[in-house]
C-alpha cells in the first residue's frame, strides 16, 4: 500500500504563516493550540547575513517514538502517517516525552498534534496547510514522488544554497515530512540523527505490554491507570535511564 508524505521546502518558505492559520481554521483548533510554528532563523552578522524560517510541525516518522510509547493506541501509523484517535488518549504524556522533535503537546489533558488532516485527505482533499501555501513550499502526495521532488528541488537550488540537502529520507526510519533544507539541519534546530527522547526500546519491552492490557478496561480504570502509570512511568524512566546509560553511550538525551 502506498505511503504518503509532505514536502516541506524551507528554501522556499517565506514565513507568511498562511499554513499556520489554514491549519487552525480548517481543523477548528481552539485558541492556544497550533500544529505548525514558524520561527525566523538568522546566521551571520550585519551585513553578511543569511536567513530563513523553520516551519516546525509533526514529522510523521516511520519509526514513530510517540506511537511506540502510546499505551492506548491513540497514536498509530496509517498510510505512512502518524495519525491519532483523540478519544483513546488517556493523557499519560508519554508521547510528549518520547518525541525527538518535541511535537505533541497536552491540551486539556489530551495529547494533541498534527494528524495530517486525516478527514480532509480521506474526503479526497489536500491538507489545509498544503492547499494554501502561496510559495509552494508545501506539497502532499505519495512518498516516493515527494522524495523525488525534494531531490529535484535540492538540485535546483544548489547554486543559491551549496549546502542544500534533503532531510528525512532515512531519519527515524524515514520521515513523513521530507524537508528541503537550504543548509545543515542544525540551522533550523533539527537533530542530525533524531533519536527518541525516551528509551523507547527499553520502554516497549518493559512497560507497554502491561499498560496496553489496560486499555480494554473501562474509562475509569484507564483514567486511574493513567495516573498511576504516569507516576510509575517517571520511576521506570529513571531506572531505565540508569540501566541504559550504564550499558550504552547512545542514550536518549535529557
Amino acid at each position: 500500500m502506498a505511503t504518503y508524505a509532505f514536502l516541506l521546502d524551507l528554501a522556499r518558505c517565506i514565513g507568511c504563516q498562511a499554513c499556520v492559520v489554514a491549519c487552525k481554521t480548517g481543523n477548528e483548533l481552539p485558541l492556544g493550540t497550533k500544529y505548525i510554528t514558524i520561527s525566523e532563523r538568522t546566521q551571520g552578522t550585519f551585513p553578511n547575513l543569511q536567513g530563513g524560517f523553520q516551519n516546525h510541525r509533526c514529522y510523521h516518522c516511520t519509526d514513530a517514538s510517540c506511537v511506540a510509547v502510546c499505551p492506548t493506541g491513540a497514536l498509530f501509523k496509517e498510510d505512512g502517517l502518524t495519525r491519532m484517535d483523540r478519544a483513546k488518549c488517556s493523557g499519560c504524556t508519554y508521547c510528549v516525552d518520547a518525541c525527538p522533535f518535541g511535537v505533541p503537546v497536552m491540551v486539556d489533558g489530551i495529547s494533541t498534534k498534527c494528524d495530517a488532516c486525516t478527514a480532509v485527505v480521506k474526503a479526497g482533499g489536500q491538507p489545509w496547510c498544503v492547499k494554501t501555501c502561496p510559495s509552494h513550499a508545501l506539497m502532499y502526495g505519495e512518498r516516493d514522488q515527494i522524495l523525488a521532488e525534494a531531490q529535484a528541488r535540492v538540485e535546483s537550488i544548489k547554486a543559491r544554497y551549496p549546502n542544500a540537502q534533503v532531510y528525512g529520507e532515512k531519519e527515524a526510519g524515514g520521515l513523513g515530512v521530507v524537508v528541503v533544507l537550504p543548509d545543515s539541519p542544525e540551522v533550523v534546530d533539527l537533530p542530525v540523527d533524531p533519536q527518541p527522547k525516551l528509551l523507547v526500546t527499553g520502554w516497549q519491552k518493559a512497560v507497554q505490554p502491561l499498560t496496553l492490557g489496560l486499555t480494554s478496561l473501562s474509562v475509569i480504570v484507564t483514567g486511574i491507570a493513567a495516573v498511576i502509570a504516569r507516576r510509575n512511568h517517571m520511576q521506570e524512566l529513571k531506572t531505565l535511564h540508569q540501566a541504559e546509560t550504564a550499558g550504552s553511550e547512545k542514550a536518549g538525551e535529557e
Binding site: E28, L29, P30, L31, T33, T72, R86, A87, K88, C89, S90, V107, D108, G109, I110, T112, S218, V219, I220, T222, G223
Partner: peptide, 23 residues
C-alpha cells in the same frame, strides 16, 4: 465508549470559554 465522555465535558467548557472553536 469510555474515553470520549470526559473529553466531551472538557469540550463544552472550552467552547464556552473561548466562544469560538473547540478541539
Amino acid at each position: 465508549g469510555g474515553g470520549g465522555m470526559a473529553l466531551a465535558g472538557r469540550e463544552i467548557g472550552r467552547a464556552v470559554a473561548n466562544g469560538l472553536t473547540k478541539l
